[in-house]
Amino acid sequence: MSLRLTLHRPPPGRISLAGIVPNRLAALAMADIERLPLAWGKETPALGEFFRVAGAPGPHLVFEGMDARFCDVARGMAAGECEIHGAAGDFVAADLLGGRVVVRGSVGAFAASGMRGGELHVQGDAGERLGAALPWQAAGMRGGRVIVDGSVGARCGDKMRRGEILVAGDAGDFCAARMVAGTLAVAGRVGAHAGYGMRRGTLLLLLPGAAPALVPTFVETAFAADVFLRLLRRHWLATLDAGGAFARRAGAAEWRARRWLGDLASDGRGEVIHIV
């Protein structure tokens, strides 16, 4: 069963869709869903003012004709599947606990921030601070998987604590900065200061060619974690859609790698692995 929310009136500004998740809507009648209040500043317009509601409530929720002014899409979702046609704003799949979110477009900043489980698949680009911590938080993403077919902005994986972020395109500056743990893989180019302040965790760079320009507090090791990389690669090939942008890059050839340890100015147990 699938519930379809089709945009019929563009939002007047940034509107939060927090709470509009399949596991919550499944228990409501169609009329109650149309009356659900949305947060727009101090006002609480009804969901039906912007969306035409069709189908039947169930584990599958579809947003059609979406606009980047809608933020908090699928925020805190615990189960089910949420499909977004078009762009989405900030905090997409933030605090996600479970289920799957697919965005057939691009997303704004802080997507997957605080995520603890489930999967977010962005078929376009993601803005800055994907999977990153909010300024007052000790850790960003804490579990689950994020796949971005396009590129991501600056500070992707900032203070990331657990889980994996797979980026098929490029990543901006300070990628994996202050990373606490987890795995962040980038198939394209990375910006300046990758791994800055990294404590633990793995930044995997899949673009062949010149070695990444790392801060001087990273040291190259004599060992490239072959068994771990084999395990990781087989896991990705077994679980990713073979036709997906990231899977095509990850599965291109047998991996040979160089490995750097750092950031030695921080805890120093992180690693940057470059697949050559």
């Binding site: 889980g163 793995t202 974690a225 072959d226 771990f228 395990l231 990781l232 679980t239």
Partner: peptide
């Protein structure tokens, strides 16, 4: 180093031939 891959947790212990 601990790594969680596919929901399973692994430990990577440095040893003299690698890990």
């Amino acid at each position: 180093i601990a790594k969680v891959i596919g929901g399973r947790r692994y430990w990577r212990v440095p040893v003299m031939d690698g890990e």
